[in-house]
Design a protein around this nucleic acid. Sequence first.
RNA 1: GGGCGAGUGGCGGAAUGGUAGACGCGCUGGUCUUAGGAGCCAGUGGAGCAAUCCGUGGAGGUUCGAGUCCUCUCUCGCCCACCA
Length: 836
Amino acid sequence: MKDTRLIMSAEKSILQIESYQPQAIEKKWQKQWEESGQYRTDTSDTSRRKYYALSMFPYPSGRLHMGHVRNYTITDVIARLRKMQGYNVLHPMGWDSFGLPAENAAIQNNIPPAQWTYSNIAYMTDQLKALGLMYDWDRQVYTCRRDYYQWTQWMFLYLYNRGLAYKKEAPVNWCEECATVLANEQVIDGECWRHGTPVMKKNLNQWFFRITDYAERLLENLEQLKGWPDKVTLMQKNWINKSVGAELVFTAESGEKIPVFTTRPDTVFGVTAMVLAPEHPLVDQLTAPEKKAEVEAYREAARNKSEIERTTTEREKTGVALGTFCLNPFNNEKVPVWIADYALVEYGTGAVMMVPAHDERDFAFAKKFDLPVIRVIERRGAVGVPLKEAYTEPGVMVNSGDFTGLDSEDAKEKMTRFAEENGFGKRRIQYRLRDWLISRQRYWGAPIPVIYCDKCGEVPVPEDQLPVELPEDVDFSVKGRSPLESSPTFVKAPCPKCGTEGRRETDTMDTFVCSSWYYLRFIDPQNTEKPFEPGLVKYWMPVDQYVGGVEHAILHLMYSRFFMMALHDGDWTDHDEPFANLLTQGMVLKDGAKMSKSKGNVVDPDDILAEYGADTARFFILSDSPPQADFDWKDTAVEGCFKFLLRVWRTIVEHKDAIRFDLPLPIYDTLAGPERELYQLTNKTIHGVTKDIESEFQFNTVISKIREFVNFLGKYEPGREPNAVFSHAVVNLLKLLAPITPHLSEELWQRLGGEGSVHEQPWPEFDSNALTSDVIEVVVQVNGKVRDKLQVAPDLPNAEVEQLARQSEKAQAHMDGKQVVKVITVPNKLVNFVVK
RNA sequence: GGGCGAGUGGCGGAAUGGUAGACGCGCUGGUCUUAGGAGCCAGUGGAGCAAUCCGUGGAGGUUCGAGUCCUCUCUCGCCCACCA
């Protein structure tokens, strides 16, 4: 392969010095770091300022992909930097190791899910270690291990005892491929997030977490998450989707109350029908006998439609009149009751007051079924213009009884109050966010710790009986119900209350439950008494920097926020937000497309490590794009990075004799010529690199600054004697590179005779006197166009710079015969002559 | 349909309202070499011999000065979407 030849030839060419052999030095240092324990964190040391750096932990799918490499490298560089800056750094890694793929692999290969999972973890652990990541391996967590899921079950009980976990029968999303139910968040465009297959609605008795209790707080707190990308907070805001309005109660002729939720109580005089969701509980009672067959057929059809069919906006409206009527409480008008599948049983009250004049959907429905359109709001200044489409803007009220003439925005408030006073309505806030469906009819997850007893009903397993262990005598291949039902040892269990024989809950928890609190367990992973020690969590939380893919913007990040709030409310934590700063890294692309097996454009991290080593991989993946943007993988650019590291190596090893650690620091004022320039560049680089990392981790510009620095160093002739300025430059270069290329830096640090580990060194400081050059280029503009450039001393008084500029022949050529009306001088930047 | 973000060389991308294209990839020429796909040196937005002119999706505007700010517009990407 050409890459291997490149390395061989490169090595040959520098054979006369000593060659850079990444594979050898990387292995050596990884072993050394592990043995020295220098990356372990003492979480009980709460005396220093702390920094908690966290990557979203991986699912052990088999092997790492480049997205992982990018994610973990970014976090690792941040963690290493903070450590050098003197923080007490926590940087852990673990495994989100429950989940469906393990079960599928078990069925296919006839091996237990645990075996498949642990062998993947072993392989991926080796890969992570080969990348030289600064993890405290002693605090790994595995969500599939009983010492972890015991506490996931504890979390369930905690929520259950606070009334935040409950079971109910509801129409839920069912994926045939997964053979289980899914949370709303796991349904994308009516399709399963994993399989892309249509999701069906089924009425099932399922467990939910009452995340809607926290809807308002989840929304309000977004304001304080200044360290999150706007994009993510916005997505969460849209997902929660708060609507302020009113619940108004219509009354059927037969007496049944039909509440509706509306954001437009001001349009209630325009109601010309009542539309119920097909699944609405009142449908049977409100259907006229002669309509029974037709209505039942419609409901049956709706049931068999997939989510995708039901929710496309382009579809024509369908519906059936029930043949009965209800009364509008505001004017006692009789309006017909219909069912239509554009009304959703899960939202609001499952019933909609139909106002065709002022709602686009209702307008389409009325047109289709020839229902009357009554206009109750007119545009100000354009009264009497005929309606061609729904008018959804505010305006002036018409045809609205006592409310006629009001501004429609005022009317919302007044009409809601009127409804409240008269007992047929109230103000109501509605969120789109639904409760989180957490039960799964699958094996490889944390069992829900509940026992059903004929006498006592639903009984939570007492805390001291946790964990409810996952049995091994299970037939994984059963579909449609939990495989746990097939375990002879699992199902039967004594009722914790009365001791008679009961049945265990056989559903397991959504793996997102496991990952909603893992960041807390990292702080205290070996605790056998509690999920974590609140005192430690108080010090370590929140996570200072969380890094991961934007695909978790809603699912994981909102569930974790919910957990944190719930734990906070029970005094388990001081904070109610888990992640202070969030960085969503972009995707790794190849040839402009997402890496995928089907496209055949996957780059395997193992190959890159074998060919170039971890430092090149780390350096490259940070180099070309800012971390938030997508990153285009380019093989030639990887080579370029390797060549650069070779050059760093050569530049330093070649001049080994000139580098000493015990030389006195250069004194800026005494320096002249190239030495002075080198010293300036060293300080500028330290300053620039530090600044770029601090401001949103712009590693791509960090790397370009380091390249400029090295380019200069390569041309510099330090001589054979110890050289203080050159030594200062090289020592600082190694420190700046340490977080990015930890092995190379460590190796050179040691070879040069540096004490201890480069990673234990303080982050370099810069000499602020030496940040400016001795000569500055000032631009001479005429009417804003660059005409000449001057070399002047920095901070030369404006008047003198202007004098010099006036003498510029090139500038004068453009000012000839014209009058200078204004001169603008920007110190150390430019002089602009405005001429007429 | 609604919301958000982005459009800069052949490519990835730099630019507190102040020299557009840093840094790199690629390419061109030279050098060293048995050889070069390594190293080193030089060049590289477009047009032009040159002076110079034109250039950040498009059209306007603000400003001494606009890739950057404002208005409109086009294209692409992402998110949400029959949520009442």
